[in-house]
Structures are given as structure tokens and as C-alpha cells.
Design a protein around this nucleic acid. Sequence first.
DNA 1: ATGGCCCGTAGAACGGGA
Length: 264
Amino acid sequence: MKIATWNVNSLKIRLPQVLTWLQANPVDILCLQETKLTDDRFPALELAAAGYQSIYSGQSTYNGVAILWRADRGWEPSQSMIGNPHFPDEQKRLISAELGGVRVVCAYVPNGQAVGSDKYDYKLRWFDALIAWTGEMLNTQPRLVVAGDYNIAPEDRDVHDPAAWADQVLCSVPERDRLRQLMALGLSDAFRLFDQPDKTFSWWDYRQLGFQKNRGLRIDHLLVSDALKPLASSCLIDRAPRKWQQPSDHAPVVLELGPGRATD
DNA sequence: ATGGCCCGTAGAACGGGA
């Protein structure tokens, strides 16, 4: 079973790239963030024609999340849910469902804008609620993947210029502490379960030739629960779509869960 | 030293992103 996450920065603009990518990378499950589409405009028919079913929760201009899965798997989603039951939120940043025996959470964590700002406070409160809810989910379904755009670089090695980013939003101590608290529930950063090249990132600024100079951050993650961790066989960031014309500023991250009961 | 791009909503610039 392969599970991927990708912040597409407008699915309206990026749908052709998503379809192209899925054709070359027919993952079982794809979590999308920043779709920026109201539900009535979500391209469910186009995705179905490409062999993917979907659930989605979006809004205009900002936010929006979706989970796609291969129709030929014959899965019926259960526990399908929009948002966090413990955090009423008008912003569409969370969607989850159980698919193929795995509870999948697709998250678009708030950016936070700047340390100390109202948006930063919202980010921390939002994340605290995610921690609380994830703890409860693990009690009922230990096979859990929390995937998405976390807007947090876990460590300095996930940052192209740690000195410049020190204590800035996405890298600040309170944000990193919260990510660690989430992982302390029994979740692992799938990317770090394997040897990885130095300076591997998942986001690069559109400006200043950020991608060409590899001035990036690793902020998109797939966290796997202890029950699934032994099944993880690879986790890779696919830089290829970032080289395409009119790309998203984020690259997809792909986790492979090996044989076992993951494809039940 | 500053901001440099992209997207959506606009129907011109601007907020937001990271």
C-alpha cells in the first residue's frame, strides 16, 4: 500500500499535474491540501475517470483538503469525518477516513504567519487539538497515518539555512515541541525511518530561484503509528513535479507500507 | 537594505502563503 501527501496550491490549477503524477505514481491513497475549491467545484468526476474516488472539504481562496483512493481497491471508507471534533473551525483543514484497514488523517496545519501573531496562536491551539484527537483515535484504531502539510520543519537538518530560520515561524521551539508531543503518542516521521540524502526538502519558495538553489524546508510529513511502523518499507520525496511548468511550491511525499495486513 | 513569486478574488491591487 502506498500513501502520499501533496500540497497542490490550488487544485483548479494543478489538476492536470495531479492526474499526470497519479498516472506515473498510482498510489493507493493521496492526501491533498490547499485545494482552494468549494465542494461544488471539486473535480470528483475527472478524478473518478482517472480511477480515483475522493472525499473532500474545501472553501474558496484558502485551505481545502481531500483524500483520494484507487477505485479498483474496492474500499468503502468508514469513520469518514471532516474537521476535528474537539476544535470547531470554519477553516477547512482536516479530513479523515478509514480505508483498507488504515485510518488516514489528511491535515493542512495553519501556517502561523509570524511568531507571536494571532495566526501563530491559532496554529498552536489548532495543533494542541490535533494532539488530543489523535490520542483518542489511536485508542480505537491503532493503525493510523497522519499525513499532510504540517508547516513545521522538525529539526535543523530539515532547513536549508537553520541560522536564518532560527526561532522563525515553521521552525520555532513551541511548534517543534508540539510536533514532538504528537509523535510521543506513538507516531514516527516515516521519512526518518530510512536513510535519506542530506538537504532533502518538500517545499521551496517560488522566489529567488529557491528550488534551483535547493533553498527549501521539509514541512510535509507522513506520521505512522507504532502498529504500522514495522510495515513501512520506504518514504521518498518526489522532486519531479517541482520541475514542471507552473508547479506547486510543495513536492509530494510517498510512503510505502509493505505486505502484511495493510492491504486487507 | 528591501524584496524578488504564485494564487484567488478581483476586474486593481492585495491578502495569504512559507
